[in-house]
């Protein structure tokens, strides 16, 4: 606003030449537009791109979900909300929903706890710091499907490494691909393997931003390292924790790769023990070629994520407020 003010002040000083008055009026206007609209113009590429790659598919999926739609044959008759009613009446849908949440909880919670712990260790004075820090990131670079292949060798029911070890010790083998909860643990392990290092680095960056004099003060007050961790580090990481929780929630609700490569068929087990919602979408759309129903599930998943994001928002706002009062 300062710029325009100055222009406005200087304007009357000019000689009353009608041409220059017009020119000044124009440049006046342009600079006002500049100030008013430029910021929106600069940020618009993202939103234009989002409209094409995000909003449009969203709307189109909604359109598809209201029709009979074959993957190859294309659009069929309009069927209203029939697709939604159908999938909501399917036990497979509710089973997939339960599995998604179960795998999500089993992966997100230990993941965040482990990541903070690893970050705290990395934050200490270590030799060859960069080596250790890059080291924890290595699993993240490995493609999820490659991770799946490696872990499948560990988790095979009869001849897997873990079960071979257990039977050698005289224990009962774990039924990785039969028992629902156990299969979720196995899949969550793969997810954690990939993401712990990544999150640990984010936490590490945040930890290093904590002023060192806070720790000095705590040391002078006689707080041990553990006490410092829980009373200084963790509270000061709150915004970062919130960020990581939100990203891992969105990622967690869309788990696909790890669960899909958990067996050779990729449908989530003979009894759908580990079929997630995204895998159910795949089965409907590509296995049964029913794009209408697949789109209906995709929209239900979208609504679910929005719902949870809102919930996240309100909870984190409360936490943030509490942080402010402290």
């Amino acid at each position: 606003m300062a710029v325009t003010d100055r222009v406005r002040q200087r304007a009357p000083e000019n000689p009353p030449d009608s041409k220059s008055v017009k020119r000044i009026a124009l440049s006046h206007k342009v600079s006002r537009w500049d100030v008013k609209f430029s910021p929106y113009l600069y940020i618009s590429p993202f939103f234009l791109l989002f409209a094409v790659t995000g909003l449009f598919p969203l709307g189109y999926t909604a359109w598809v979900s209201l029709h009979n739609w074959n993957l190859i044959g294309g659009q069929g008759d309009f069927s209203g909300l029939e697709n939604y009613a159908f999938v909501l009446s399917q036990p497979f849908f509710w089973n997939a929903l339960g599995n998604t949440f179960s795998i999500f909880v089993l992966s997100s919670v230990p993941q965040i706890i482990l990541a903070i712990t690893i970050a705290a260790v990395l934050d200490a004075n270590l030799r060859a710091k960069t080596f250790w820090r890059m080291g924890v990131l290595v699993p993240f670079v490995v493609a999820p499907v490659a991770v799946g292949l490696i872990f499948n060798n560990l988790f095979a029911d009869q001849f897997g490494l873990i079960n071979e070890g257990l039977t050698a010790l005289g224990l009962d083998p774990v039924r990785w691909h039969s028992d629902s909860t156990v299969s979720h643990v196995a899949i969550a392990t793969m997810v954690n393997f990939r993401w712990v290092g990544y999150n640990a680095l984010i936490f590490l960056a945040a930890m290093q931003a904590i002023p060192r004099d806070v720790y000095e003060a705590a040391t002078i007050d006689g707080a041990g390292r553990l006490r410092q961790f829980f009373s200084v580090t963790v509270p000061m990481l709150r915004p970062t924790v919130i960020f990581v929780v939100i990203t891992s929630t969105i990622g967690g609700l869309q788990i696909f790769d790890e669960a899909r490569v958990f067996d050779q068929y990729g449908l989530g087990g003979a009894d759908r023990q580990w079929q997630t919602l995204t895998m159910y979408i795949w089965e409907l759309g590509w296995g049964q070629r029913n794009f209408g129903r697949a789109s209906a599930v995709a929209w239900l998943l979208f609504l679910l994520i929005v719902l949870i994001a809102l919930l996240n928002f309100f909870i984190t706002r409360r936490i943030a407020n509490q942080g402010g009062r402290k």
């Binding site: 499948n152 029911d157 009869q158 001849f159 897997g160 067996d263 003979a270």
Partner: peptide
């Protein structure tokens, strides 16, 4: 053994 599974493939050797 489930056909084409890891265990199935390993079963040929065991």
């Amino acid at each position: 053994l489930g056909q084409w599974s890891e265990d199935w493939t390993a079963g040929f050797q065991t």
